[in-house]
Design a protein around this nucleic acid. Structure first.
Lengths: 337, 337
DNA sequence: ATGAAAGCGCTAACAC
DNA sequence: GTGTTAGCGCTTTCAT
């Protein structure tokens, strides 16, 4: 029942613990005979070096702390998948905590894990933190020698590795695509206008209009601050009714679903009368009717990249701080012409 | 940059490390003056006891290992949320790994974490494990003194705490509800027939028919083994066309979506001609059109219960092994009469 | 009231 | 080729 230790093995064979340690680590100092019998015994009795003893000794835990705003959004679950997979491949475990978009919780988590529990962090800021613009806890963590990799929602003033989506060009390219396919009145529906990524998407939208020579009309843009997707439809109804848009880009899936439902309610056909394209990562998009055209975000790849960069840093494989931009893909389905 | 230790503090005040340790733990042995200055200094300099040293000393890590088949299914993400929240409240961290439905991966994860990294496991079996019926790794883990709490997909022959959904009555009650609302030809679409939970749902369906006096007709039941939801529609088309069902219960959301789309394609109105009800936990259901009536699963509550039971066991708050059954709720939306 | 020392499980520098 | 020892950071028993 109680775990086998090198001490037990040493007693068993009447040798010293260092002999056992060396034998298990295949040291050239130990005779083949001794090595063999010790290794055999260890294997048979399922010996595993104690994790905490090793971590204490090596001052390294081979574990990564992940802080996510939520796990219930598909995008974050995808990023998590990418991190977890890559981490395990490289011999790291992950401790995952949820900030629930709360600054205080985020702070608490960082404090809790900054005691030698983890070697580094991968995180995406809580909404509250981004709005508050208080990044001291990140700065201190880094100064304490714990590296951070931020993804998606990153802190502009903090010097650390960052992995972001190419939100700007994602929106820009979509406007160009819509223009090419004959759309003239392109709307923009944002539920993220208080986040940096929301602004990037908006700026890409504007620049896209400029590129194709369409005028920017602020009536065609609506910012929704309500977090409750159930209210989206009533908010969107007057917006869509008044403007008679022939297409709309939304910053998320729920808003796109609401746009589609509202449009149908208004008697518009999709995509004949109005095209709907959303920033998204998949799950609702693929099941909606009509199936949604999306600006797809590659969450899993983002997670893989985060893990790779953090682990490389932990293992001193690089020193320069980098920002990696992950391109989006326009996945054409049935909600756009 | 390098973490402050009791040794550093001891040096600073010219006292021994044991004095510091006792002072920080508010021991009655230490004078108030000493305690005060040491505690003040520790606080100001952000002292935190080293996690690995503590774990080594206490033989307890205050961390829980979670093994999930996937994080991309909303149900599992919800369970995770419940576990993480409860664990943190009680001072535990969570290390989360994904088995990807693979037996080998599950084994590997258990091996990896059974070295003092965690105090106990919360897990839901991989599909492969359930089909293979090889539960030795669970048995050995428990024999090694690491408690396991299983949820949803549990191993029948393993004696450990289990939290399961009341799948049987969930299905049974739904049949009774459908009967009460005037349905006579109730179909059953399963994508989980090789899992125990799938069988429970099926048995509940059958028993429900018996209870209300409807005949069981095996033509009204279809088992889909394909994992690709894109194929669901073509599989369901002949099934729905032939049987002219007035209602159907599905074991999951994707299948329900496919049923609805296929029904519409066949010219049936929902819910006038056919009602669709799915075992589900929410995300697609709430966004589908029509919105889906569901047998709702309470993943978050399940997670909370898992964490509570495991931690109680770790802290010797109980000794008897329990199986907790979480009731389902029928959430009526627009896809059923 | 304070300190010395052992021990948690392991590694590694340094004897022998 | 094997053993002794110190040390990772901390708690705790037992002196003093």
């Amino acid at each position: 029942m109680n775990k086998l230790t090198i001490k037990d093995i040493a007693k068993k064979f009447n040798v010293s613990i260092s002999t056992v340690s060396k034998a298990l680590n295949d040291s050239y100092e130990i005779s083949d005979a001794t090595k063999e019998k010790i290794q055999k015994y260890a294997k048979e009795n399922n010996y595993k070096p104690n994790f905490n003893a090793l971590s204490l000794k090596n001052r390294s835990t081979k574990t990564i702390g992940i802080i996510l705003p939520t796990m219930l959004k598909y995008f974050f679950a995808q990023v998590f998948k990418g991190i977890e997979k890559t981490a395990l491949e490289r011999g790291y475990k992950v401790i995952t905590c949820i900030s629930n978009e709360s600054y205080d919780k985020e702070l608490e988590i960082i404090e809790m894990l900054s005691n030698g529990s983890i070697d580094g962090f991968i995180l995406s800021m809580a909404k509250e933190t981004e709005i508050k613009k208080d990044f001291n806890h990140f700065q201190e963590t880094i100064e304490n020698g714990i590296p951070i990799v931020m993804f998606d929602r990153v802190a502009p003033t903090i010097e650390c590795d960052k992995i972001i989506t190419d939100d700007f060009n994602g929106a820009l390219n979509t406007v160009e695509h819509l223009h090419k396919t004959g759309h003239k009145k392109i709307g923009f529906v944002s539920t993220l206008s208080n986040l940096h990524i929301g602004q990037e998407r908006f700026l890409g939208y504007k620049k896209g209009l400029e590129n194709v020579g369409l005028p920017y009309n602020k009536d065609f843009v609506i910012n929704i601050f309500d977090d409750d997707y159930k209210k989206y439809e009533e908010i969107l109804l007057p917006f869509l009714k008044k403007n008679k848009l022939d297409s709309v880009i939304t910053t998320g899936e729920s808003a796109a679903i609401a746009c589609m439902k509202t449009s149908l309610k208004l008697g518009y056909e999709i995509p004949k009368d109005i095209s709907v394209i959303a920033f998204s990562n998949g799950i609702l998009a693929r099941h909606s009717s009509p199936k949604m055209t999306t600006i797809s975000q590659h969450g899993e790849q983002m997670g893989e990249t985060c893990a790779k960069i953090l682990i490389d840093r932990l293992e001193n494989k690089h020193t320069e701080i980098t920002t990696k931009i992950i391109k989006t893909d326009l996945v054409i389905r049935d909600s756009s012409k």
